[in-house]
């Protein structure tokens, strides 16, 4: 399967490149555009980006793997990320994670069979004042307790 940016996204990227004195600086935003288009970033997308930005595919892979927030292939439709760092841990992050794991029937970094949910413990999401914070795709769900987990999952399922 090969990857090519849609004309709109390609235009967006070309415009972005002009914002920086060096083409290569648009690498992080380019990865975002690929993620937005395909739902995740695979080798084909990386090669495509490398070609556009005049860097080696290895360079793109090196950058991609440094950052944890880009979606890898095989990620479920809803990427559920539970903050497990101290401020959230103090407010029960562990029990929220455990409840999510048992309700979804998956563990850390696993995806449900139907490809709907991927569960992850992550580090600080900068929402310590509304702990426990759970990020699902782009959205923050704050002040989550173990009791609120079934409701959260139901909400997500309805979203489809």
């Amino acid at each position: 399967m090969s990857f090519t940016f849609t004309p709109e996204r390609r235009a967006k990227l070309d415009a972005l490149v002009t914002r920086y004195p060096k083409k290569q600086a648009a690498l992080l935003p380019a990865l975002r555009l690929a993620e937005e288009q395909a739902g995740c970033i695979d080798f084909d997308a990386m090669e495509h980006i490398a070609e556009i930005l005049d860097v080696s595919p290895a360079k793109v892979l090196g950058v991609f793997t440094f950052y944890t927030h880009y979606r890898r292939p095989g990620t479920g439709k809803f990427l559920v990320q539970v903050c497990a760092t101290l401020p959230c841990a103090l407010r029960g992050a562990e029990s929220v994670f455990d409840r999510l794991a048992s309700e979804l029937g998956i563990g850390q970094d696993e995806t449900t069979k139907d490809g709907m949910f991927t569960l992850k413990k992550v580090e600080c999401l900068a929402s310590c004042g509304s702990a426990v914070c759970v990020q699902v795709n782009d959205d923050y769900y704050e002040n989550i307790t173990a009791d609120k987990v079934p409701d959260l999952i139901r909400q997500l399922k309805e979203k489809k």
């Binding site: 060096k22 600086a25 690498l27 935003p29 950052y67 944890t68």
Partner: peptide, 23 residues
Amino acid sequence: HRGAGAYICGEETGLLSSLEGGR
């Protein structure tokens, strides 16, 4: 310019490396 989940990019020179399109 959006980062992608690395605490170290809050360090000013790490931020610059990241801004320039690197690790």
